[in-house]
Design a protein around this nucleic acid. Structure first.
Lengths: 407, 407
DNA sequence: CGACTAAGTTCACGATTTGTAAGAAGTGGA
DNA sequence: TCCACTTCTTACAAATCGTGAACTTAGTCG
């Protein structure tokens, strides 16, 4: 099977999708404005909107006067047409959030993980338990949930198979395991990707079509967005920016290779470098985040700290420049807790460092921004997955049927 | 203006495109097979093929018996429906080639460049002269040329504006300059991209949808292909792989930065490294290509040469690994004259080096191959640009009108 | 020569967008 | 209160398109 045919139904679905996406993204809109946005004729807009209104995906929201004529009726996505749930399965917690279609948070459930590693079976229990909890809290019926997006800290490939080194998961069919417990449609993705998605929709990435959301925490990753949608590669493990070699033969990285970017700008790597230069003396009794903040705060007192931070900015700048040269993006968003701490203090210096390593042409076309959402946005981003699917399908909810669909 | 509407005509154009592309790519095909490939109904296939036949884009090509029933009539793209021209504007030559729609070479014109730098005006004269020449040689009328694809050694952005450091061109509106001299539709692209395109269609990239064609010559570049089509970034200067930092603070590169991949694996950089280790003694009286071949041939005799080549494979492996980690491609094709010389001798070692630096998951999903077409394929790749457009538009030639369209 | 088989064609039908014209919903002035 | 005016909304006919079912065509085999 080759290229895909186009039938008359694809046309309608596509136009419904265009209209619905327009309403969702650009707020309350009149039919007239929809026509301008979508280039559809007034007749078609009316027709399609009528259908969406009938199905309750869209609702009227007041009206606005117009220079003496009939007032325009505003349309918006019906926030209560359905709900979406985003779940974050991380190393230290499982977090489940319920949103309405206006992406307003309606309920939340958080479970800290005490055990060293979270096995897949427990993760399923936490997630399904969290789903039940948020449904109850918000008073929403399960059948009104359009979908559940799950973000995991690892590589997700094919039909929701998860490989997560830090959790000790290897080829875990997490999507299928969840689908066995609920008939809510499930989508699984990498946490870095969902956080990137959240920034693209609601944060510093708004309006960009070709962007990279770089995440610097203890580890380092990136979400690539090309042509308005997330780029995943042949089997959705693209974006492993943290393990690109930036110093051939350099520091050993926990991935087993040497000279990875992560070994230089990941918080763990930065602290190790500091300890090395500081005659082996490390801040004790602090967790990684406190230690990292302490390091940043001590640059004025300590020459060693200043050098370590300075180097970090340089390395990070080179890493960004690699992205600029390879992807020619329109925007790079720096996120992650360590990235945020660094960016708050050193964004100008970072921009300068990028300029030193990037080619003039693509560098002139990119803007480098700090992320706007906290790290709690991982679940929000996961919740956008079912929304994205709804918009793409023109407002037709995914049918709930066996075999449960994954991804 | 936002998302694009779909009308009933887009549907037909799209289906024509699917059918025509199928016939072009998968050789002579019967209507029946077309139906299977495209999922279109037999009625629609017949209808659309009839139209294409009527317009002479497609022609019948014999028939094949079928287990006792009516024989299937084979269809192929009419090689003489139109012709395409590919031009390569390089540092040492301008090369113009004329192809029919079966991509058979019909005529060629080559102009060596003696002067140190080729100014844009002269380049226009060479190209237009070459076009006239190949038309005359092949006995083709200008109005039968569907398009002219031009490959230049530099960054091409927006409406065919060219920045070519090595030619000394800065923001040259090369497309517009050419369009002023002829009414053949013109498309301009980077030479690395067109060579990559050629490999994807006719060489080692056949069948892949997510691939990288890496070009190692005196300099280093790459063509990125994602989801079956060339990735260009926000303003089409993506793919500058040669200037990604691989050794932070390392060797100075001609781009002005330090530690670029090109400074380590580009032929110029390799020879410099050899000279450095060899007590400053360089092979004299040889051009770069001879010197590079000589270096490779001397690894058995010279420990220094062996080390330099060994290191080169290591660096290149890390560079490939970066691509593997970031893009998760299905295939990487190594090309360029130096890449070819290296690959012929050290492909297994190179694969091993990539494995050392890449993550296990994406590495297991990629195959690394040697390119199959010589460097003369740059013009062939350029000629595919108008073909691609014809296929995309479903066999409707680009109208020749003012203002001349570029890109 | 006639049945059989498979490929290709014709035609009515339903789905879809579009342009046009008619209708509806307000505003402002008499 | 009524009426003209402006602007948004809807109804309808026309045009286009893919589809399914019946039909035609072209070989093969007995």
């Amino acid at each position: 099977m080759d290229g895909r045919r186009t039938t008359v139904r694809d046309m309608r679905r596509s136009n419904r999708s265009v209209i619905l996406t327009s309403i969702f993204r650009d707020g309350p809109l009149s039919r007239f404005e929809l026509g301008q946005h979508t280039l559809l004729s007034a007749a078609s807009v009316s027709n399609l909107v009528g259908e969406l209104l009938e199905e309750r995906v869209v609702e009227e929201a007041g009206s606005v006067e117009s220079d003496g004529g009939r007032p325009r009726v505003l349309l918006r996505v019906n926030p209560r047409f359905g709900y979406v749930i985003g779940a974050e399965v991380g190393e230290t917690r499982v977090r489940v959030e319920l949103f309405d279609l206006a992406m307003q948070l309606r309920a939340i459930a958080v479970y800290p993980i005490e055990t060293a590693t979270l096995d897949p079976e427990s993760a399923v229990i936490y997630v399904t338990g969290g789903v039940a909890k948020v449904l109850e809290k918000a008073g929403v019926r399960p059948e009104d949930v359009l979908g559940l997006g799950v973000a995991v800290a690892g590589i997700v490939e094919g039909p929701a198979i998860v490989h997560a080194q830090t959790l000790g998961w290897e080829a875990v069919p997490f999507g299928a395991m969840l689908a066995a417990e609920t008939d809510i449609p499930i989508q699984v993705d990498n946490g870095a990707n969902t956080l990137g998605q959240a920034e693209m929709w609601f944060g510093a990435g708004r309006g960009a079509t070709d962007a990279v959301v770089a995440l610097v925490g203890s580890g380092v990753g990136a979400a690539l967005v090309t042509g308005g949608s997330s780029y995943r590669g042949i089997r959705s493990s693209a974006g492993e920016w943290g393990h690109t070699t930036i110093m051939y033969g350099g520091r050993r990285c926990r991935c087993g290779s040497k000279g990875c970017l992560e070994a230089y700008v990941g918080a763990e790597g930065v602290l190790e470098r500091f300890q090395l230069l500081n005659d082996g003396v490390a801040a004790s009794g602090l967790d990684e985040e406190e230690a990292f903040t302490g390091l940043l705060d001590s640059v004025k007192r300590s020459k060693v700290a200043a050098k370590v931070v300075d180097d970090t900015i340089g390395y990070l700048g080179a890493g960004f420049a690699n992205l600029v040269n390879l992807f020619n993006p329109e925007r790079i968003v720096l996120g992650g807790w360590a990235g945020l701490l660094l960016g708050e203090r050193y964004l100008p210096q970072l921009r300068e460092a990028v300029g030193k390593h990037a080619l003039r042409q693509p560098f002139a076309q990119v803007t480098i921004e700090l992320c706007e959402l906290g790290r709690d946005a991982v679940a929000l981003g996961a919740a956008t997955l079912p929304v994205l699917r709804l918009l793409r399908d023109g407002g037709v909810p995914v049918p709930r049927s066996f075999p449960a669909q994954v991804n």
